[in-house]
């Protein structure tokens, strides 16, 4: 299973490192809001990592190996979940570095956590879409999703971007603390639910791909 994670993680790692570099450059240059904005675009990077790693996958090869289909699914989904967690952690650390332990940081951390709650199910849905329809067929829908996400990220970025206006906006939409626990828990629960359905979807599609 580790071999599958290692191979599939190539695009996750390269995507993440690229944007870490960009955000660090921006932070060092003093444009701390821009840095947070860049990292907030995980809506683009996560589907993109899933898409490119799956476009380079060969399930016909994996089916030759003594590994159960559900273990392959589990490896892929755990990788996606791990990536979502890494993005959340990096975004939070960056916000902490930019704002310190101030109310400005807590407001941004709340918003980041709320938004990040949707990433695990988003990753699972991307995988399921690809297993259902194939990576090539899903390229256009996922690229469309990324464009929509980019527009959304611009809006999200604007909120947390400026220290003055952002603080005012975030103060108005402050997230109650129970929601900070409930939303990630709901995101994880939805992810686990999708993870239960995913092997069946993959198996059906896989069989279709294997037929001569």
């Amino acid at each position: 299973m580790l071999a599958i994670v290692r191979r599939s993680s190539f695009f996750y790692v390269t995507h993440f490192l690229t944007y870490v570099m960009m955000s660090l450059v921006e932070t060092v240059a003093g444009r701390r809001g821009i840095a947070v904005f860049i990292v907030s675009m995980a809506f683009i990077w996560l589907p993109s990592s899933v898409l490119w790693s799956e476009r380079n996958e060969s399930y016909a090869f994996l089916r030759l190996l003594p590994v159960r289909d559900r273990d392959v699914v589990r490896a892929k989904l755990l990788l996606g979940l791990g990536a979502a967690a890494v993005y959340w952690l990096w975004l939070s650390l960056l916000a902490l570095a930019a704002w310190g332990a101030t109310p400005g940081f807590f407001a941004r951390f709340s918003l980041i956590t709320v938004v990040a709650s949707s990433w695990p199910p988003l990753v699972a849905l991307c995988y399921m879409g690809i297993w259902q329809r194939g990576a090539r067929a899903m390229t256009f829908p996922l690229l469309t999703l990324m464009v929509v996400a980019f527009i959304g990220a611009v809006g999200f970025g604007r909120i947390i971007l400026s220290p003055g206006r952002g603080d005012v906006l975030l103060g108005r939409i402050s997230v109650p603390w129970p929601l900070l626990l409930l939303l990630p828990a709901a995101g994880l629960a939805l992810f686990l639910l999708l993870a239960r359905v995913a092997p069946r979807i993959k198996w059906k599609n896989d069989e279709h791909l294997q037929l001569p």
Partner: peptide, 18 residues
């Protein structure tokens, strides 16, 4: 499945390797 595939060497008609 795992036990069987561990003991079977299968060469497909079209090699599907990376």
């Amino acid at each position: 499945e795992r036990e069987i595939k561990d003991r079977v060497g299968y060469c497909p008609q079209e090699p599907p390797y990376y």
